[in-house]
Computed example of a mutant assay.
Amino acid sequence: MLEELGKVVEFKGKGVELHLDGQGEPFLYPYMEYFLEKASRMKGVEVVSIQSNGTLLTEEKISAIEDYVTRINLSLSSLDEKTAKTLHGAYSVKKVKEVAEMIASSKMDLLIAPVWVPGYNDREIPKIIEFALEIGAGKKYPPLGIQKYIPYRYGRKAGKSMPFKEFYRRLEEYEKEYGVKLVLGPEDFGMEKRPKLSCPFRRGERVRARVVCEGRLKGEKVCVARGRSIAVNTDKRVGEFVEFEVVSTKDGIIIGVER
C-alpha cells in the first residue's frame, strides 16, 4: 500500500491529503500505526485524516498516532444509547464520547460526522452540535460534518432520505442558532481539482486475471491486473484465473463480471 500510495502522491503533487476510510472500521487494520508513521512522512503528504467510529480507540492508541494524524472524522450519530444501538448495532455512546474528548485534547483535530437519519436521530443533531462545541472540536477544520442519509443499494436501509433542499435549510437554521458553519464545501478542507489517474481498462474489455482474495459482497472476488484491483463477480477460488468483462470503470473503481 505504501508503494502504491507513493506513486499516487507523486502523480498528484505536493499538498496531498491522505484520507483513510473503508467498508468497515479502519483501525481494524493491524499495522495501522506503522502505516500512518510511514505515510505521514512521505514527501507530498500534507494532511492525514481518518474516518472512524471510535470504538477501537483508546488513550494509548491516540497517543501513539497523534504525531502522524492531522484529523479524525468521528462517526457519532446519537448521544442516546438506545438510538445509537439502533443505528450502529453494538455500540457504547459513553465510550465514544470519552474517545471524542481525548481526540479533542490531543494534537489531532476532531470533526464529528453524524449521519442524519430522518425519523431516528432528528432530536440528536442539536445535542451533537452542542457536544462538539463543548469539547473543543474543530481546532483548524470545521467541528462538524453532518451527513445526509442516502439509501445505498448495498448499505443498511433506515427509512426515507430527507430531500437535499430541506437538509440544507435545516443546517442553515442550526448555523444561525449555534454560530457554527455546518454547510461545508471543498474550500473548508483546502480541496482543489487535480488531474485524475488514468484507468488502464475500458468498459466492455475482456480480461484474464488471478483471484487474490475474497471481495466485500457475496459472490465477489478481488483480482489484480495491470497494477490495479478489480472487483469481479465469480465463483472462482483464490489463486485461480478468471476471464471477465469490465462493466464499469467509474471513478477508477473497476468492476468485472465473469463471462
Rank of each mutant, 00 (worst) to 15 (best):
Y34E: 09
G219E: 03
S198N: 11
L20G: 14
F131P: 00
P126Y: 06
E245A: 15
Y174D: 04
F241A: 10
V45L: 08
K236H: 03
R216C: 13
M32F: 09
K181C: 07
E130Q: 15
E66R: 12
S63M: 04
E205R: 00
F27W: 14
E25Q: 14
K85I: 15
S106R: 06
F244Q: 11
R153I: 15
V93Y: 05
D251G: 00
I128K: 07
R170N: 06
E172A: 08
V247Q: 05
Y31F: 13
E37Q: 08
V48P: 01
V69H: 00
L18T: 14
E4M: 03
G24N: 15
K12P: 06
E192N: 07
V8H: 13
V96I: 11
R170Q: 13
L2S: 10
K97P: 02
I129K: 01
D67W: 02
V232W: 02
P143T: 05
K43C: 00
C199L: 08
G252K: 00
V207D: 00
E243D: 14
E130S: 14
M1H: 09
A104L: 15
Y174G: 09
L2N: 13
R71M: 10
E10F: 08
R194E: 10
Y154V: 15
R226Y: 07
G252D: 01
E3M: 02
V224G: 01
K139F: 06
P163L: 08
G24V: 02
G256P: 07
L76D: 09
P151Q: 05
L56T: 12
G252A: 01
G185P: 00
K61A: 08
L56P: 12
V247M: 06
M191C: 02
A113G: 02
A132Y: 11
A84R: 04
V48D: 09
A104N: 04
S198P: 01
D122I: 07
I230W: 08
A137C: 13
